[in-house]
């Protein structure tokens, strides 16, 4: 395929993508403005835009965003520290890996969101239950990836470093860590994403405050336009956080 044709192809793909989005927005506008779709089901996009500007301008979102982000930060730091520490300790012996890895992988295959009612029973409707569920759900990818990272370092590197007289600290710093880091970082990224999702989810299901709670609250009040604005806001926040984490991962990997 020639370069010119390739460029034309790329241009056509872009055109299709833009056309898709423009078409979607047009149908949305026409549907709500002229074809009589109930504004309770689908609000006018112009109205959603005004609501969004109002939400952002008034700073009304701040308390909810703060709660959601605090829950996320606490949950992720707990699961990070415990996941990486436990994973490292388990990975120090092939025997422990054989004992614990299948157990952890087995629990990971159960949809942990099932335990949410139990957590609400333990920790109440407040941030406690959200932190707990976020921690539990993000713990497993982190610990499993840490085990995979540290546990399956090529033997030849370890033997070579030992025979050249590396100390334990040197071994960790120059052999184990560089070999394990990419896998661990992937685990941390996955953990972050699922922690965010499960915190938003548990806020949606049972909570007193937070972005997820706000969306549900507006849905119950039938303020659909404002709900759409908040959904857009939450999606952008989530996309932003995920992009930041992914680019951090890529940057740390390249070093």
């Amino acid at each position: 395929m020639s370069a010119r044709q390739d460029r034309r192809d790329k241009f056509a793909s872009r055109a299709v993508q833009i056309g898709f989005i423009v078409g979607l927005l047009t149908f949305w506008y026409l549907g709500t403005a002229y074809w009589g779709i109930s504004p309770l089901l689908l609000p006018n996009p112009v109205k959603v835009w005004h609501e969004l500007k109002d939400v952002l301008g008034s700073g009304e979102y701040l308390p909810d965003l703060q709660i959601t982000l605090t829950e996320l930060a606490v949950a992720f730091s707990i699961s990070c520290t415990s996941g990486v520490t436990l994973g490292y300790l388990i990975s120090r012996s092939q025997y422990l890996i054989k004992v614990f890895e299948p157990l952890l992988a087995g629990v990971y295959s159960v949809p942990i969101i099932l335990f949410l009612p139990l957590y609400v029973l333990f920790f109440g409707l407040g941030p406690g239950s959200k932190i707990a569920i976020g921690t539990t759900i993000s713990f497993f990818p982190i610990v499993l990836n840490t085990i995979a990272g540290f546990g399956y370092v090529d033997k030849i590197f370890i033997t070579a470093a030992r025979s050249m007289g590396a100390s334990d600290v040197q071994m960790f710093r120059y052999v184990l860590l560089p070999a394990a880091l990419p896998v661990i970082l992937t685990g941390l990224r996955i953990g972050f994403t699922v922690a965010l999702l499960s915190i938003l989810g548990s806020e949606t299901i049972a909570s007193l405050a937070g972005l997820g709670h706000k969306i549900v609250h507006l849905a119950e009040a039938m303020e659909t336009a404002r709900m759409f604005a908040y959904i857009a806001f939450a999606v952008v926040i989530a996309a932003f956080l995920n992009t930041v984490v992914s680019s951090l991962e890529r940057k740390a990997r390249r070093r």
């Binding site: 709900m227 959904i231 989530a238 996309a239």
Partner: peptide, 11 residues
């Protein structure tokens, strides 16, 4: 795929 679909559960 990347958007958190949980936010549109009320919808």
């Amino acid at each position: 795929y990347g958007t958190p679909q949980i936010t549109i559960l009320p919808l």
